[in-house]
Design a protein around this nucleic acid. Structure first.
Lengths: 227, 227
DNA sequence: TGTACATCAGTGAACGCGCGTTCACTGATGTAC
DNA sequence: TGTACATCAGTGAACGCGCGTTCACTGATGTAC
């Protein structure tokens, strides 16, 4: 709906709807603030970084920071929000005949590269990935992250319910299926963030492996199914 | 390990290990602070209640509040913490031949009444139940609640892994199973807290019903299984 | 039972801190003609 | 292309607020004899 068009955001683009200098500088300031924030957070820690530090690192006033972000937390999760929206779009685009869990897995598999590219347009992907370690090790950030994940799950549950033609408040299955999917993702996120290889590919593979474990984990007797 | 003994905390108890006046007054002050906090939180809102308000309502100084609770958040979740520990104890006590998910469900079924009684010894149970609505509707509290739930899940996953004789970091199933269980509980908590009947019994029944939906929700095609 | 001393819960007041807001203002970008 | 005016990103400084901490102190409870 708000897609800017197929043209790349090249500086020399002669398109009629070119962003304009003002708009361009705004985006630059915002991205600079984002990048400064993530760099400080990963280097020094979230709690140890004040909003003033971020503003100073981006060579703007603290006042300006709050023009772009309503809060320190909003800045911290700005990139994640972008990534999530790509995933939701992918879920929406899955063929309706697909089973719900297959749709979720399919959307996820599709999203990885899209997300990587989208993030890279804002900040270095590697920086964004490293920031997950900070999230997991900072109580206030982890808490906020989990709350946001819950909100995202509600949105996805609505999409799933619509796909299946169900009333979200009458049938428990959409929320349960999405909650299970989300629970696995959070487990993998945490394990992944504690490991050496903080790449997107590592997270992708780990998530796939863990999703495969849902059925075995719910099976009655584990000893029977042990490899 | 730290059980005080089988004797009821009656004022006239002549036992040798009677708490002592000092200890007794401490407990009273703490419980009064807890109760004042929960009452203010439910009446007026969490963010709208300052630590000074709580201290004033309990007729002590703000300084004293911080003797009992390291933070406002700790006071908010003090009763929940107690309830959770009962559940963990129940999981530990399940017979080891039981399948993991059955053990979790069994422990939960057992815990409801135990928890109700334990809570009632601290604050009115109805007040504690009403406080869940506040948690769900207060972003900062919900975030903290979810983070605490995640920590609890890690603890339970350790218990489950030990029961099954598995290495928690080598086998994904304990964390996955517990995460799935926890995810369903959080979905029911949220739905329950939005409803009229905020009783413990209502939550118990809703949770049981939703746990029954896990298998159907993960089934490939929902239309085939629709009732 | 009574006295002397030790312990420790509670006090009052002041403070540090960082988030987020408010004010009145400057100067660059955009637009109309 | 050039001028006049409107818009709006960015500024600097000061502030309100509540959490949580620090200080030096009081008085009730507990204990030893």
């Amino acid at each position: 709906m708000k897609v800017a068009g197929p043209s790349a955001p090249s500086e020399t683009a002669p398109a009629a709807s070119r962003p304009g200098l003002r708009e361009l500088k705004k985006r630059r300031t915002r991205d600079l603030l984002l990048r400064s924030a993530l760099e400080l957070f990963t280097e020094r820690g979230y709690e140890e970084t004040t909003v003033d530090d971020i503003a100073e690192a981006a060579d703007v006033s603290q006042r300006t920071f709050f023009r772009y972000f309503a809060s320190k937390e909003e800045a911290a999760f700005f990139v994640s929000r972008l990534a999530e929206s790509h995933f939701v779009d992918a879920v929406r685009a899955r063929p309706p005949e697909e089973a719900p869990l297959d749709a979720l897995r399919g959307a996820l598999a599709e999203s990885w590269s899209t997300i990587g590219e989208a993030v890279e347009r804002l900040v270095p992907l590697e920086l964004h990935m490293r920031f997950y370690r900070v999230i997991e090790s900072t109580p206030a950030l982890l808490a906020a992250h989990l709350r946001r994940a819950t909100e995202l799950e509600e949105e996805i549950a609505r999409v799933v319910a619509r796909r299946e033609g169900l009333d979200l408040d009458a049938d428990p299955r959409p929320r349960v299926a999405v909650a299970v999917f989300g629970a696995v993702m959070r487990v993998t996120e945490r394990i992944w963030s504690a490991r050496e290889d903080a790449s997107l590919a590592a997270l992708r593979d780990l998530t796939a492996a863990y999703l495969d474990q849902v059925a075995p984990a719910l099976t009655g007797n584990w000893r029977r199914t042990e490899t």
